[in-house]
């Protein structure tokens, strides 16, 4: 059930209307509408090339829509791009981390970019959350792929965004890390914040999410509760 959002008095964390996005002559997103309430967890399924990642990039402000509008926590991504980006945390395939900096230094850098208050304390908090507090002063290049992914999650939640965008976050994580991530996301949505996650792992997507959408040819072919797919957890 949708809860009161953590930002302002807007009803939805995401409001997408008539979104079109193409690369050259190739349409990738086609007249796409989407609303996501506070506290909702949307799992996005779809074949490769169906437009999942492009949709996440558009929501994150990384891909400019050809037409249509996107509002994140009430902020229009065209008119108030910085305010919209402030509301979003992204875990993508690339970790956006500097390999020659330590975990703590990477988080310090991003924390300063996001003007995070009480940064030192917040860094300790997120490192503890992803289980990297004992490796805080190790350089990123010395971490395993899974640990780098956990640090990327810490980076994404450092500024306490109201919307988390996750592109196949489970890839590269071991079972314990996947379980920790599930717990973190459960608490995240329980606090009224929202999550959009793409994944090819149907079981995991259905188990974690409160809502499921299936993308095909740049459109949402199905949008509803996972139970309707007949393969609910």
């Amino acid at each position: 059930m949708a809860q009161t959002g953590p930002v302002g008095n807007t009803n939805n964390s995401i409001e997408v209307t008539g979104l079109h996005k193409g690369f050259g002559d190739l349409p990738v997103l086609w007249d796409l509408d989407l609303e996501l309430g506070w506290g909702e967890f949307l799992a996005l399924f779809g074949a490769n090339g169906s437009g999942k990642t492009t949709l996440l990039r558009a929501l994150a402000g990384q891909a400019r829509p050809d037409s249509g509008s996107i509002r994140i926590a009430g902020f229009d991504t065209r008119r108030r791009p910085a305010a919209a980006r402030r509301q979003v945390g992204v875990v993508a395939h690339s970790a956006f981390l500097y390999e020659d900096l330590t975990c703590r230094e990477n988080l310090t850098f991003y924390g300063r970019l996001y003007s995070v208050e009480n940064l030192k304390g917040r860094i300790e908090e997120v490192l503890e959350l992803v289980g990297l507090n004992r490796r805080a002063d190790r350089r990123v290049r010395s971490l395993s792929h899974g640990m780098q992914k956990r640090l990327a999650i810490a980076r994404a939640i450092l500024h306490q965004p109201s919307l988390l965008l996750l592109d196949e976050p489970e890839s590269g994580l071991d079972r314990d890390s996947v379980a920790s991530l599930a717990e973190l996301l459960r608490e995240w949505t329980a606090s009224g914040r929202s999550v959009v996650m793409t994944t090819h792992n149907v079981d995991l997507g259905l188990a974690w999410s409160s809502r499921v959408a299936v993308m095909s040819n740049g459109r949402l072919d199905f949008d509803g509760a996972g139970d309707y797919l007949g393969v609910g957890s």
Binding site: G61, Q62, R85, V90, S94, F96, L113, Y114
Partner: peptide
């Protein structure tokens, strides 16, 4: 080059800074 190779440029562009 470092920003490009390590994905840092995208990370920078995601931040709420001009």
């Amino acid at each position: 080059v470092r920003e490009r190779e390590q994905g840092g440029l995208e990370g920078l562009l995601l931040a709420p800074v001009s």
